[in-house]
């Protein structure tokens, strides 16, 4: 995959940071607004896909590393299961932080309210874990499939030359 024209590269330079910030906004505000870990992770991964198609597969490898993504993905799933295990004093997946007054433990007023970031117990932690897993997982898929497409193209060219 070769890099695309200068216009596309400049627009990607302008936009990809905002896409990533918007994705992390959706992940972090998962317990207040529509969205959550899966949706926000998909938005962040779309920024990686935009980088890939505008800069080409070889140039993208300089700033996106598959090994780091792999590490982040495993960390995300482990963190999710770990937070679930932390509630084991009562049950698996028990929301032990909600309404406790400590981290993410502010008591929420039922009904319509302004929305407080510091509520909802373990839900923000799980949103962050799932978001980490989803964006790094989809990033791995996009990068590896670009590699595979490049490999297939090279092989077909060799077949035609022969």
């Amino acid at each position: 995959m070769r890099e695309m024209s200068k216009i596309i590269r400049n627009v990607t330079n302008l936009v990809y940071g905002f896409i990533i910030i918007f994705g992390f906004y959706i992940i972090v505000h998962g317990h207040l607004t529509p969205g959550g870990g899966f949706q926000g992770g998909a938005v962040v991964a779309s920024a990686f896909a935009a980088m890939l198609i505008s800069y080409g597969q070889l140039n993208t490898k300089k700033f996106l590393n598959i090994n780091i993504f792999s590490l982040l993905e495993s960390c995300g799933l482990t963190m999710f299961i770990g937070v679930a295990f932390l509630g084991l004093g009562t049950t698996f997946f028990y929301n032990f932080l909600a309404n406790s007054g400590s981290w993410f433990g502010n008591i929420v007023i039922p009904g319509i309210n302004a929305g407080d970031m510091n509520t909802a117990g373990v839900l923000p932690l799980m949103n962050i874990a799932v978001g980490l897993e989803v964006f790094s997982g989809l990033g791995i898929i996009v990068l590896l499939m670009a590699d595979g497409a490049e490999y297939t193209k090279k092989k077909e060219k060799a077949e035609n030359d022969r």
Partner: peptide, 27 residues
């Protein structure tokens, strides 16, 4: 809203009441 403290009821169902389902999805 009063049990989990989350304004978004969908997230409270997905990550709290039906956590096992989400664990399966992540797996």
């Amino acid at each position: 809203q009063s049990e989990t403290g989350a304004n978004n009821v969908v997230t409270s169902i997905v990550f709290d009441y039906r956590g096992f389902d989400t664990l399966g999805e992540a797996t």
